[in-house]
């Protein structure tokens, strides 16, 4: 260890002497014993993971779970730039591959959840959307996610496979932005995930459609190679892939393997 600079040394010494003189029993430094598990997870996992975080902390006393929820690509970029995370849970295998290819994953990623698209419409459904084909009708304005983000890639795959063609009003940067446009009634519909509709229940309504099976989105999770808490990270992966984890994820609208 580096010696503290001269300026700091005197007060440091003084405090050591003082505490020794006081002879007070020092309680176990909880700050040193507490262990923190850092989980980077796709924003769509927010609700389910927070619930599982509570379970995890209960099961592992003295452990705190910290989350960083964001777009999977942002998180992948952060992991590859050396962010101190233990676990990465992505909303697509493609973004997970960015980390795997960079050698950032500590093991083989495991798919723990799946998500499919749904049509989100405002509660009053002004355009009367009942199927995917309805989106292509004249005067119907639709928000899709941009193809660069997972929900947009999935939407593109579904539309291409089903041969439905239309020009969307906008290609949103993420699911939340697309949902906002639906909630405000600025568009008649958006293609988002079932989980997003579940999270926004009341403000938007979900219309399932069979073509959604063309793009089932896998959620992989992996312990990271440079995980400071590799042991805890493995326990986390275990929890989310357990039946108990599956129950929580189903509650949030996910399918589980």
């Amino acid at each position: 260890m580096r010696r503290p600079p001269a300026l700091l040394r005197a007060p440091l010494a003084a405090s050591v002497i003082l505490s020794a003189a006081a002879c007070a029993p020092v309680p176990d430094g909880s700050a040193e014993d507490a262990r923190t598990l850092t989980v980077f997870a796709a924003a769509s996992l927010t609700g389910a993971f927070e619930e599982l975080g509570g379970v995890f902390e209960e099961r592992n006393p003295g452990t705190a779970v910290e989350f960083s929820f964001a777009g999977s690509s942002d998180l992948a970029a952060q992991v590859n730039a050396g962010a101190p995370a233990d676990v990465f849970a992505s909303a697509s295998t493609a973004t997970m591959d960015l980390v795997v290819d960079a050698g950032g994953a500590g093991g083989e990623p495991v798919v723990f959840a799946r998500n499919v698209l749904e049509i989100a419409v405002p509660p009053d459904d002004p355009a009367g959307i009942g199927s995917l084909d309805d989106l292509a009708e004249d005067g119907v304005s639709v928000a899709l996610c941009a193809e660069e983000v997972p929900c947009g890639a999935a939407a593109r795959a579904v539309l291409d496979a089903s041969g439905v063609e239309f020009e969307p009003a906008t290609l949103e940067r993420d699911v939340k932005a697309a949902l906002t446009k639906v909630e405000l009634g600025e568009v008649d519909a958006a293609l988002v995930y079932t989980t997003d509709v579940a999270a926004a229940s009341g403000r938007v309504r979900g219309v399932p459609f069979p073509e959604a099976e063309e793009a089932v989105n896998d959620y992989p999770v992996a312990v990271l190679a440079d995980a400071p808490e590799a042991g805890l990270a493995a326990s986390w992966v275990e929890l989310v892939t357990s039946p108990e984890g599956a129950e929580v994820l189903s509650g949030a609208g996910f399918r589980t393997p």
């Binding site: 690509s73 941009a146 660069e148 906008t170 290609l171 932005a177």
Partner: peptide, 24 residues
């Protein structure tokens, strides 16, 4: 991106293009 959305050639300005390119 909130008010005008993002559509190439119509409302996708450079900062929006940069942001989305960053995703991929």
């Amino acid at each position: 991106i909130m008010f005008a959305g993002n559509f190439p050639g119509r409302t996708q300005t450079m900062p929006l293009a940069v942001y989305l390119a960053m995703q991929q």
